[in-house]
Structure formats: C-alpha cells, structure tokens
C-alpha cells in the first residue's frame, strides 16, 4: 500500500522507484508496528489466565442465561426506585460538572488566560479528573460522605469535569476574534466581553457537550451502586452477590431499556436544537 509501482526510465536504463513516504517516516511507522507487536506478544505470554476456569466457561454461560429467565418481578419496586435515583444522579452530576468545569475551561483556554503556567495547571486538573475512573471517584466519595446518592452525584460531577472542561476549553479557543475585538474597542469590561462576546459563540458547543455527557453519565451512574454510591447499581450488586440471577436479569433489562431510550432522546434533541 505504501509503494507505488516502479516506473522505468525508457532507454536510459535508470530505474526510478517512487515511494509515498520519506525513509524517516517509514522508519517511524515500522518502529511503531514493531513495538506494538512486541507489546502484544509480551502481554500474551505473561498474562495470568487460569485454564481450569476455562473448561466449564460454556456451561457457566449457559447456566447464567438459564437462571436469568424468567425475571423475578417481585424485585421491580427496588429496581424502579434505584432507577429514579440513577437518573437524578446523572442529571444533577452533569449540572454540577458544568458549573465546576466552566472556570477550569476558561483557565485552560489560551486566548483567555494568557499565562502558560495557569494553562498547564488547568490541564493538570482536567487530566486528573479524566484519569481517575468514575467508580474510583465514587469509592473516594463514599469514604468521605458515606454510602448513598450524594457520593454518586459528586463522583459523576468530578469525573465529568475533565471531559466537559477539555471540550469547552477547545470551543472557547476556536471562538472568532472579530466580535471580541469589537467589544474591546467599544470599551467593554472583561465580564461583558465574556458574556456578550464569547458566550454566544460557545453556547451551541456548551449545550451539545452537556447533552453528550448526560448520555454517558446515565450509563456510568447505573454502575456506581456497585461500590455503594446509590442508584440501580445497588440493586444489581445485591442481586449478583446473592446469586439471584433472575433479579439481576431484570436489572440488566431495565438498564438496557433506559440506555437505549436516553440515546434516542439525546439524538432527537440534538437534531432538533443543534
């Protein structure tokens, strides 16, 4: 794919070969390929897999699905209240993330904050927020605030700061200079420049990021209950640790339906508004 067919110089005996990439580029690519291959082989050879567990995997899987059906509908009230809590957790967490991420996004945007040092600091906050998973955030907040939806909401909010802040910061950096210069020339204060110059340009991106993150957060808040942070995950955790797979099946079916519904809703809103 990287090599075009050779063309021979007619009569001169010179053979010219055309290549798409420079030797340096090819070297870089081969280096990446080789390193990836080594990494995969290393992982395959050293990862610990217990073969005894594998012999009965098909039987275990069949057993799993057999025990899930029919669903245990007596469990439904618990599932429903967990579901309501999950949806509120996702929504409140997203709103809180928007509030917390906006100042960080302003700090991270190089056209607003002129100090490279502050940009780096904001970037550090954003990366830390994203590297720590929502479940691990939830563990920390459960240790601080005790089990319940408060810990879940804060976990969702802190995990979303990185995502929202990064995308929002990029949107602010892409804002056009024209309206900003006009406002500056008119003698507008920094606050007025932000509200009347930047905000109208960033607003569509802001709401689409919020919607996108809400969609993700509904999925994420459904599992926070596994570490005690409230929501439908608590029901799932109870069911699986009691090995009541018919209850777990009901929870999974509920999560499936809700996730599909939120995806339909968000895509509807996106096409209509944005």
């Amino acid at each position: 794919m990287t090599r075009a067919p050779a063309t021979a110089g007619i009569g001169t005996g010179i053979i010219r070969e055309w290549q798409r990439f420079t030797p340096g580029e090819r070297l870089g690519r081969y280096a990446v390929y080789v390193v990836s291959a080594i990494a995969v082989i290393w992982s395959l050879r050293t990862i610990e897999v217990i073969p005894e567990f594998l012999y009965d995997a098909p039987a275990q899987t069949a057993d799993l699905f057999q025990r899930m059906w029919p669903f245990d509908w007596r469990f439904w009230p618990t599932v429903l209240s967990g579901l309501v809590e999950t949806l509120h957790t996702a929504t409140l967490g997203t709103l809180m993330a928007l509030v917390l991420a906006s100042p960080v996004a302003l700090l991270a945007a190089r056209n607003i904050t002129r100090s490279a040092w502050l940009n780096q600091l904001a970037n550090l906050i954003l990366v830390s927020s994203r590297s720590v998973n929502s479940l691990i955030w939830a563990l920390l907040f459960v240790a601080i605030f005790g089990p319940g939806a408060l810990a879940g909401t804060l976990a969702i909010a802190f995990r979303s700061i990185g995502f929202v802040g990064k995308l929002l910061g990029e949107a602010i950096e892409e804002a056009q200079r024209g309206p900003i210069e006009a406002l500056t020339a008119a003698g507008a204060s920094p606050m007025a420049i932000l509200i009347k110059g930047y905000w109208p340009q960033v607003e569509p991106a802001f709401w689409s990021v919020a919607l996108f993150r809400w969609d993700i957060n509904v999925r994420e808040s459904a599992v926070l209950g596994l570490v005690g942070a409230g929501g439908i995950g608590v029901a799932l955790d109870t069911a699986t640790s009691n090995l009541y797979w018919d209850q777990a099946g009901l929870v999974l079916a509920t999560i499936f339906t809700v996730v599909v519904l939120t995806e339909i809703i968000t895509s509807r809103i996106r096409t209509r508004i944005i």
Partner: peptide, 11 residues
C-alpha cells in the same frame, strides 16, 4: 457477566 462465565482474573 464475564467473571461469572470465565471466573475471576485478568481474562
């Protein structure tokens, strides 16, 4: 679900 199917561990 996979922990139930193939047991605890990296797999």
């Amino acid at each position: 679900l996979f922990v139930k199917a193939v047991g605890f561990g990296a797999l």
